Computed example of a mutant assay.
Amino acid sequence: MVSDQHQSGCNDFGLGLRQGAVMLVPHNSAWKTAFEIEAETIRSTLRGRQIDIQHIGSSSIPGIKSKPILDLMVGIEDFQAGPLLEPAMASIGYDFARHAGVPDDHVFGKGIERTHLVHVVKFDGPLWRHYLMFRDRLRADRSLARDYEELKDQLAIRFSQDRAAYTAAKKAFIDQVTA
């Protein structure tokens, strides 16, 4: 059972977006704290089944707009064991998105209005390195981060009610950055 305090704490950070919708908000410096709190909750819940937890996605890049959803990446030793985390993740409010359609990524979402997405991937595997490379390049290059934000602004207007299409339309930019 998720504590009321833990659930209400999400709103303190301005998190939450209706499933399927796309809306960008200015970066919130409190998202770093929200990540740290959630990462600790996940660590204590998984009790060592994870190797590392990283803050990824636009909410981890200071200065650019983001959907008000935190993306966390949990690295595990054996990717095939990811679905076995479902009961533990459910105990802290996460649903297993079995049919998310992201290869090599077990996705867990929190909240009816999504506040957090957890990507469970093989630690130091190709997807782990891909997510970190993209985040780190945008953090290091303000111009590149602004280009990404401009693209996201355009796509958010075009796909305001279709998050899957919005995400797919960003793929070419992301692939170019990580090539």
Score class of each variant (00 low, 15 high):
residue 70 L to D: 05
residue 59 S to E: 12
residue 82 G to Y: 07
residue 114 R to Y: 03
residue 177 V to C: 00
residue 107 V to W: 04
residue 94 Y to G: 08
residue 141 D to L: 04
residue 123 F to C: 10
residue 43 R to G: 00
residue 128 W to H: 09
residue 151 L to M: 14
residue 139 R to G: 01
residue 178 T to M: 02
residue 34 A to L: 07
residue 18 R to C: 14
residue 112 I to S: 11
residue 31 W to D: 05
residue 11 N to M: 03
residue 101 G to K: 06
residue 31 W to N: 03
residue 86 E to C: 07
residue 138 L to T: 10
residue 90 A to D: 13
residue 89 M to W: 01
residue 126 P to K: 04
residue 62 P to M: 03
residue 8 S to T: 12
residue 39 A to T: 01
residue 105 D to H: 10
residue 121 V to H: 09
residue 22 V to N: 04
residue 133 M to E: 08
residue 1 M to L: 08
residue 27 H to C: 02
residue 107 V to N: 04
residue 90 A to R: 15
residue 112 I to L: 08
residue 98 R to E: 15
residue 100 A to T: 11
residue 101 G to D: 08
residue 115 T to W: 09
residue 133 M to W: 00
residue 150 E to L: 14
residue 129 R to C: 12
residue 165 A to T: 00
residue 63 G to H: 08
residue 61 I to R: 00
residue 136 D to W: 08
residue 22 V to I: 10
residue 11 N to Y: 04
residue 149 E to Y: 02
residue 84 L to Y: 02
residue 19 Q to G: 04
residue 141 D to V: 07
residue 1 M to R: 08
residue 122 K to Q: 15
residue 146 R to L: 11
residue 28 N to M: 09
residue 114 R to Q: 06
residue 155 L to I: 03
residue 128 W to Q: 01
residue 7 Q to F: 13
residue 26 P to K: 01
residue 19 Q to Y: 06
residue 100 A to W: 09
residue 102 V to S: 03
residue 139 R to H: 02
residue 30 A to Y: 02
residue 160 S to T: 07
residue 108 F to Y: 15
residue 100 A to S: 15
residue 93 G to T: 14
residue 109 G to P: 02
residue 80 Q to C: 05
residue 175 D to K: 08
residue 64 I to R: 01
residue 172 A to K: 11
residue 48 G to E: 05
residue 20 G to A: 07
residue 129 R to E: 14
residue 95 D to G: 07
residue 43 R to L: 00
residue 177 V to G: 00
residue 39 A to D: 01
residue 95 D to S: 13
residue 112 I to H: 06
residue 139 R to S: 03
residue 101 G to I: 10
residue 106 H to K: 06
residue 174 I to F: 09
residue 66 S to M: 08
residue 48 G to M: 04
residue 105 D to W: 00
residue 171 K to F: 05
residue 62 P to K: 06
residue 123 F to A: 14
residue 32 K to G: 13
residue 28 N to R: 10
residue 108 F to T: 06
residue 63 G to W: 06
residue 24 L to M: 09
residue 16 G to P: 02
residue 163 R to H: 08
residue 62 P to D: 06
residue 121 V to L: 11
residue 86 E to F: 03
residue 110 K to F: 13
residue 29 S to N: 12
residue 2 V to R: 07
residue 140 A to C: 09
residue 16 G to F: 01
residue 179 A to P: 01
residue 146 R to Q: 14
residue 10 C to R: 15
residue 54 Q to D: 05
residue 46 L to E: 03
residue 21 A to W: 12
residue 12 D to Y: 03
residue 134 F to S: 09
residue 77 E to F: 13
residue 55 H to A: 12
residue 146 R to A: 13
residue 143 S to G: 10
residue 157 I to V: 10
residue 73 M to C: 15
residue 116 H to L: 14
residue 145 A to P: 11
residue 120 V to D: 11
residue 115 T to I: 09
residue 67 K to D: 02
residue 159 F to K: 08
residue 104 D to M: 05
residue 46 L to A: 02
residue 53 I to Q: 07
residue 1 M to Q: 08
residue 14 G to T: 09
residue 11 N to V: 01
residue 61 I to Q: 02
residue 163 R to V: 03
residue 8 S to W: 11
residue 99 H to Q: 13
residue 111 G to N: 07
residue 66 S to K: 04
residue 169 A to M: 12
residue 166 Y to N: 12
residue 7 Q to I: 11
residue 37 I to Y: 05
residue 89 M to R: 00
residue 74 V to N: 06
residue 61 I to E: 01
residue 54 Q to E: 13
residue 58 S to F: 14
residue 118 V to W: 13
residue 70 L to F: 08
